[in-house]
Amino acid sequence: MWSLYWRLVGARIRAQMQYKLSFWLELLGFALTTGLEFSVVAILFTRFPSLGGWHIAEIALLYGLTETSFSLTEMIGRGFDAPFEIMMQRGTFDTVLTRPLDGFFQVLASEFQLRRLGRTAQALAVLGFAFSQLPISWTPAKLLLIPLSVLSGTVIYMGLFIIGATICFWTIKAPEVINAFTFGGNALASYPLSIYNRLIRTVFLFIIPVAFVNYPTALLLLGRSDPYGLPAWSAWAAPLVALIFVSIARGFWHIGVSKYTSAGS
């Protein structure tokens, strides 16, 4: 399955690389757009000392972690975005179902946007800035936590992308509301969870677990405690949370496929 995935995705990457100038411009564009986003936060912090006790380097840690995960999800998961929506509208999802291969896998392999690495590069630069400023006493466990956290975050955002696509089985058009949870979730996770009210904290910890993308990890790395009692060790639960969430999303996807009636055009 994996070798097949790389063959399909490899073909997509080669296709994108045919337009070299376009590729590099867009890569640069993504890096600049998101780079500016963090500059805005940095400018804001020249006027204010801290956000609920979190200083700019600590915010950079939160931002770098969520942004890295989100950019990786955008790179691998965009098949569930516009390409899938078009499949729904034209009824070409029929073709997917007739092939002797899992439909979920085919949609996943239908798109791979290498240019999103521009965004990843920017996110890693901000993360690098955070690590250079923060007095973290590194242990092997803490080092292991970084890739684990980024991976869990990627999987959690992937779950959201899948849920957004699945709703298309009923609505044909991708609901814009999902943006509030994907882009909005990424924006929300750029700041400490403790600044939000009870409703937002509960929803984004226990229903749509976007807070698990970075907040517990940041608590653990910084040796901080959450004012509402979320334990820092919950950082180690993030992979489990991500796995549960993506399994639910896949389950929802299977329900969607079984309800699928073609566009009939």
Binding site: L44, F48, S50, L51, G52, Y191, P192, I195, Y196, N197, I200
Partner: peptide, 8 residues
């Protein structure tokens, strides 16, 4: 919430 938090 960001402004409410940052203004303290």
């Amino acid at each position: 919430f960001v402004y409410l938090g940052i203004y303290g």
